[in-house]
Protein backbone atom coordinates (compact mmCIF):
# COMPACT_ATOMS: atom_id res chain seq x y z
CA UNK A 1 0.00 0.00 0.00
CA UNK A 2 1.68 3.21 -1.06
CA UNK A 3 1.40 6.60 0.59
CA UNK A 4 -0.57 8.18 -2.24
CA UNK A 5 -3.21 5.51 -1.96
CA UNK A 6 -3.46 6.01 1.79
CA UNK A 7 -3.80 9.74 1.25
CA UNK A 8 -6.56 9.24 -1.30
CA UNK A 9 -9.06 8.48 1.47
CA UNK A 10 -10.92 11.59 2.62
CA UNK A 11 -11.17 10.39 6.22
CA UNK A 12 -7.38 9.98 6.34
CA UNK A 13 -6.85 13.51 4.99
CA UNK A 14 -9.24 14.91 7.58
CA UNK A 15 -7.62 12.85 10.36
CA UNK A 16 -4.19 14.18 9.36
CA UNK A 17 -5.37 17.79 9.20
CA UNK A 18 -7.51 17.97 12.32
CA UNK A 19 -5.24 15.52 14.17
CA UNK A 20 -2.08 17.57 13.71
CA UNK A 21 -3.83 20.84 14.59
CA UNK A 22 -5.20 19.34 17.80
CA UNK A 23 -1.89 17.63 18.57
CA UNK A 24 0.05 20.89 18.28
CA UNK A 25 -2.31 22.87 20.46
CA UNK A 26 -2.51 20.13 23.10
CA UNK A 27 1.27 19.74 23.17
CA UNK A 28 1.85 23.47 23.61
CA UNK A 29 -0.80 23.81 26.32
CA UNK A 30 0.68 20.69 27.90
CA UNK A 31 4.07 22.33 28.50
CA UNK A 32 2.43 24.99 30.67
CA UNK A 33 0.10 22.52 32.38
CA UNK A 34 2.82 19.99 33.22
CA UNK A 35 5.07 22.71 34.64
CA UNK A 36 2.15 24.10 36.67
CA UNK A 37 1.51 20.56 37.99
CA UNK A 38 -1.90 20.38 36.33
CA UNK A 39 -1.00 17.46 34.03
CA UNK A 40 -4.19 15.53 34.72
CA UNK A 41 -6.53 18.43 34.05
CA UNK A 42 -7.40 16.88 30.68
CA UNK A 43 -8.74 13.72 32.32
CA UNK A 44 -10.52 15.70 35.00
CA UNK A 45 -12.30 17.96 32.55
CA UNK A 46 -13.19 14.95 30.41
CA UNK A 47 -15.10 13.53 33.36
CA UNK A 48 -16.93 16.82 33.77
CA UNK A 49 -17.77 16.69 30.07
CA UNK A 50 -19.28 13.25 30.70
CA UNK A 51 -21.50 14.71 33.42
CA UNK A 52 -22.53 17.67 31.31
CA UNK A 53 -23.23 15.47 28.28
CA UNK A 54 -25.62 13.48 30.48
CA UNK A 55 -27.51 16.73 31.14
CA UNK A 56 -27.46 17.59 27.44
CA UNK A 57 -28.82 14.17 26.42
CA UNK A 58 -31.58 14.48 29.01
CA UNK A 59 -32.65 17.62 27.10
CA UNK A 60 -32.32 15.67 23.82
CA UNK A 61 -29.35 17.73 22.66
CA UNK A 62 -27.07 15.46 20.62
CA UNK A 63 -23.52 15.91 19.25
CA UNK A 64 -22.96 19.57 18.38
CA UNK A 65 -25.96 20.84 20.34
CA UNK A 66 -24.70 19.14 23.52
CA UNK A 67 -21.88 21.70 23.50
CA UNK A 68 -24.41 24.34 24.56
CA UNK A 69 -24.44 22.60 27.92
CA UNK A 70 -20.96 21.09 28.18
CA UNK A 71 -18.96 24.14 27.17
CA UNK A 72 -20.14 26.49 29.94
CA UNK A 73 -20.14 23.69 32.53
CA UNK A 74 -16.59 22.60 31.72
CA UNK A 75 -15.30 26.19 31.59
CA UNK A 76 -16.74 26.75 35.06
CA UNK A 77 -15.24 23.46 36.27
CA UNK A 78 -11.81 24.55 35.05
CA UNK A 79 -12.11 27.79 37.01
CA UNK A 80 -13.29 25.69 39.96
CA UNK A 81 -10.06 23.67 39.84
CA UNK A 82 -8.13 26.94 39.86
CA UNK A 83 -10.10 28.35 42.80
CA UNK A 84 -9.58 25.12 44.78
CA UNK A 85 -5.82 25.35 44.32
CA UNK A 86 -5.78 29.04 45.28
CA UNK A 87 -8.34 29.35 48.06
CA UNK A 88 -8.38 25.91 49.66
CA UNK A 89 -4.60 25.62 49.24
CA UNK A 90 -5.00 22.20 47.60
CA UNK A 91 -2.39 20.78 45.28
CA UNK A 92 -3.35 20.63 41.62
CA UNK A 93 -3.86 16.85 41.58
CA UNK A 94 -6.23 16.92 44.56
CA UNK A 95 -8.25 19.79 43.07
CA UNK A 96 -8.50 17.99 39.72
CA UNK A 97 -9.44 14.77 41.51
CA UNK A 98 -12.31 16.46 43.34
CA UNK A 99 -13.73 18.16 40.27
CA UNK A 100 -13.37 15.03 38.15
CA UNK A 101 -15.06 12.78 40.73
CA UNK A 102 -17.93 15.25 41.10
CA UNK A 103 -18.28 15.45 37.32
CA UNK A 104 -18.46 11.70 36.77
CA UNK A 105 -20.77 10.99 39.70
CA UNK A 106 -23.11 13.81 38.68
CA UNK A 107 -23.28 12.20 35.24
CA UNK A 108 -24.05 8.77 36.67
CA UNK A 109 -26.69 10.17 39.04
CA UNK A 110 -28.37 12.12 36.26
CA UNK A 111 -28.31 9.06 34.05
CA UNK A 112 -30.19 6.97 36.61
CA UNK A 113 -32.53 9.72 37.86
CA UNK A 114 -33.45 10.69 34.30
CA UNK A 115 -34.70 7.16 33.61
CA UNK A 116 -32.49 6.50 30.62
CA UNK A 117 -31.99 8.06 27.22
CA UNK A 118 -32.80 7.51 23.60
CA UNK A 119 -29.19 6.61 22.88
CA UNK A 120 -26.17 5.08 24.59
CA UNK A 121 -24.43 7.92 26.44
CA UNK A 122 -20.92 6.49 26.29
CA UNK A 123 -20.97 5.95 22.56
CA UNK A 124 -21.88 9.61 22.01
CA UNK A 125 -19.25 10.93 24.41
CA UNK A 126 -16.05 10.20 22.56
CA UNK A 127 -15.08 10.93 19.00
CA UNK A 128 -12.64 8.95 16.92
CA UNK A 129 -9.82 10.47 14.91
CA UNK A 130 -10.93 8.40 11.90
CA UNK A 131 -14.46 9.78 11.87
CA UNK A 132 -13.82 13.51 11.64
CA UNK A 133 -16.18 15.40 9.37
CA UNK A 134 -15.34 18.32 7.11
CA UNK A 135 -17.09 20.74 9.48
CA UNK A 136 -15.06 19.36 12.37
CA UNK A 137 -11.83 20.07 10.50
CA UNK A 138 -12.99 23.68 10.39
CA UNK A 139 -13.80 23.56 14.12
CA UNK A 140 -10.32 22.19 14.81
CA UNK A 141 -8.76 24.94 12.68
CA UNK A 142 -10.79 27.61 14.47
CA UNK A 143 -9.87 26.20 17.86
CA UNK A 144 -6.22 26.05 16.81
CA UNK A 145 -6.25 29.71 15.74
CA UNK A 146 -7.98 30.93 18.91
CA UNK A 147 -5.74 28.95 21.27
CA UNK A 148 -2.52 29.79 19.43
CA UNK A 149 -3.41 33.48 19.13
CA UNK A 150 -4.14 33.79 22.84
CA UNK A 151 -1.08 31.74 23.80
CA UNK A 152 0.97 34.03 21.56
CA UNK A 153 -0.45 37.23 23.03
CA UNK A 154 0.02 36.03 26.60
CA UNK A 155 3.20 34.03 25.98
CA UNK A 156 5.52 36.02 28.24
CA UNK A 157 2.88 36.36 30.96
CA UNK A 158 2.34 32.59 30.84
CA UNK A 159 6.07 31.95 31.01
CA UNK A 160 6.28 34.30 34.00
CA UNK A 161 3.49 32.65 36.03
CA UNK A 162 4.77 29.20 35.13
CA UNK A 163 8.27 30.13 36.34
CA UNK A 164 7.07 31.70 39.60
CA UNK A 165 3.73 33.19 40.43
CA UNK A 166 4.96 35.60 43.11
CA UNK A 167 7.69 36.98 40.87
CA UNK A 168 5.19 37.30 38.04
CA UNK A 169 2.90 39.43 40.21
CA UNK A 170 5.77 41.71 41.18
CA UNK A 171 6.47 42.10 37.46
CA UNK A 172 2.94 43.42 37.01
CA UNK A 173 1.44 40.22 35.55
CA UNK A 174 -2.24 39.82 36.44
CA UNK A 175 -1.76 36.26 37.63
CA UNK A 176 -5.45 35.50 38.25
CA UNK A 177 -6.32 36.54 34.73
CA UNK A 178 -3.47 34.58 33.14
CA UNK A 179 -4.22 31.45 35.18
CA UNK A 180 -7.85 31.70 34.12
CA UNK A 181 -6.82 32.12 30.48
CA UNK A 182 -4.66 28.99 30.70
CA UNK A 183 -7.27 26.70 32.26
CA UNK A 184 -10.11 28.04 30.12
CA UNK A 185 -8.14 27.49 26.92
CA UNK A 186 -7.51 23.96 28.18
CA UNK A 187 -11.21 23.47 28.93
CA UNK A 188 -12.19 24.73 25.48
CA UNK A 189 -9.68 22.39 23.83
CA UNK A 190 -10.71 19.36 25.90
CA UNK A 191 -14.44 19.78 25.22
CA UNK A 192 -14.09 20.35 21.49
CA UNK A 193 -11.22 17.97 20.81
CA UNK A 194 -12.80 15.17 22.85
CA UNK A 195 -15.78 15.16 20.50
CA UNK A 196 -13.35 14.96 17.60
CA UNK A 197 -10.62 12.55 18.61
CA UNK A 198 -11.59 11.01 21.97
CA UNK A 199 -10.26 11.55 25.46
CA UNK A 200 -7.41 9.04 25.43
CA UNK A 201 -5.66 11.01 22.70
CA UNK A 202 -6.29 14.39 24.35
CA UNK A 203 -5.00 13.46 27.78
CA UNK A 204 -1.91 11.77 26.40
CA UNK A 205 -1.16 14.67 24.04
CA UNK A 206 -1.43 17.08 26.97
CA UNK A 207 1.28 15.18 28.87
CA UNK A 208 3.66 13.06 26.78
CA UNK A 209 4.99 15.62 24.24
CA UNK A 210 5.57 18.09 27.09
CA UNK A 211 7.50 15.67 29.30
CA UNK A 212 9.61 14.49 26.34
CA UNK A 213 10.43 18.08 25.43
CA UNK A 214 11.42 18.80 29.04
CA UNK A 215 14.09 16.09 28.71
CA UNK A 216 15.83 17.73 25.80
CA UNK A 217 14.92 21.41 25.56
CA UNK A 218 17.71 23.95 25.94
CA UNK A 219 15.33 26.90 26.30
CA UNK A 220 11.65 27.52 26.94
CA UNK A 221 10.91 28.37 23.34
CA UNK A 222 12.72 25.21 22.24
CA UNK A 223 10.64 23.24 24.72
CA UNK A 224 7.40 24.52 23.17
CA UNK A 225 8.70 23.81 19.67
CA UNK A 226 9.89 20.28 20.54
CA UNK A 227 6.59 19.41 22.18
CA UNK A 228 4.63 20.69 19.19
CA UNK A 229 6.92 18.76 16.85
CA UNK A 230 6.46 15.51 18.75
CA UNK A 231 2.69 15.94 18.93
CA UNK A 232 2.52 16.60 15.21
CA UNK A 233 4.88 13.74 14.23
CA UNK A 234 3.14 11.23 16.48
CA UNK A 235 -0.23 11.88 14.87
CA UNK A 236 1.07 11.70 11.30
CA UNK A 237 3.21 8.64 11.97
CA UNK A 238 0.45 7.06 14.08
CA UNK A 239 -2.10 7.28 11.28
CA UNK A 240 0.29 5.68 8.77
CA UNK A 241 1.49 3.01 11.19
CA UNK A 242 -2.12 2.18 12.07
CA UNK A 243 -2.78 1.81 8.36
CA UNK A 244 0.16 -0.50 7.76
CA UNK A 245 -0.13 -2.62 10.92
CA UNK A 246 -3.94 -2.72 11.28
CA UNK A 247 -3.76 -1.41 14.88
CA UNK A 248 -6.27 1.01 16.45
CA UNK A 249 -5.22 4.53 15.45
CA UNK A 250 -5.52 6.48 18.71
CA UNK A 251 -3.77 3.77 20.72
CA UNK A 252 -0.99 3.68 18.11
CA UNK A 253 -0.50 7.45 18.45
CA UNK A 254 -0.28 7.18 22.24
CA UNK A 255 2.27 4.36 21.97
CA UNK A 256 4.38 6.38 19.52
CA UNK A 257 4.38 9.26 22.01
CA UNK A 258 5.59 6.88 24.68
CA UNK A 259 8.32 5.72 22.29
CA UNK A 260 9.36 9.34 21.68
CA UNK A 261 9.46 9.90 25.43
CA UNK A 262 11.71 6.87 25.91
CA UNK A 263 13.97 8.07 23.13
CA UNK A 264 14.16 11.56 24.68
CA UNK A 265 15.18 10.10 28.04
CA UNK A 266 17.81 7.97 26.35
CA UNK A 267 19.12 10.89 24.34
CA UNK A 268 19.32 13.07 27.43
CA UNK A 269 21.42 10.43 29.20
CA UNK A 270 23.66 10.10 26.18
CA UNK A 271 24.16 13.86 25.92
CA UNK A 272 24.63 14.13 29.68
CA UNK A 273 27.32 11.44 29.64
CA UNK A 274 29.11 13.18 26.76
CA UNK A 275 29.08 16.64 28.35
CA UNK A 276 30.21 15.40 31.75
CA UNK A 277 33.13 13.33 30.41
Amino acid sequence: MNILEILSYGFIQRALLAGTLIAVLCSVLGVFLVLRRLSLIGDGLAHVTFGSTAIALAFKLYSAASLLVSLPVVLLASLGILKLTEKARLSGDAAIGIVSAVGISAGIMLASVGGGYNVDLLSYLFGNILSITYEEVLIAAGLFCVVMLLLGLFFNDLLAITFNEGLARVSGVRTNLINAVLVMLTALSVVLAMKLVGIMLISSLLILPAVSALQLARSFKACIALAALQGCCSVVAGIFVSFLTNLPTSATIVMLNLLFFGASCGLRRLLGAKSSS
Partner: peptide, 13 residues
Protein backbone atom coordinates in the same frame (compact mmCIF):
# COMPACT_ATOMS: atom_id res chain seq x y z
CA UNK B 1 -14.72 -1.60 23.49
CA UNK B 2 -12.50 -2.19 20.47
CA UNK B 3 -11.61 0.62 18.12
CA UNK B 4 -11.05 0.22 14.36
CA UNK B 5 -7.70 0.81 12.68
CA UNK B 6 -7.19 3.10 9.70
CA UNK B 7 -6.56 -0.02 7.61
CA UNK B 8 -9.93 -1.54 8.54
CA UNK B 9 -11.73 1.67 7.70
CA UNK B 10 -10.07 1.70 4.29
CA UNK B 11 -10.86 -2.00 3.75
CA UNK B 12 -14.52 -1.30 4.53
CA UNK B 13 -14.56 1.60 2.06
Amino acid sequence: ESEPSAAKMAAMV
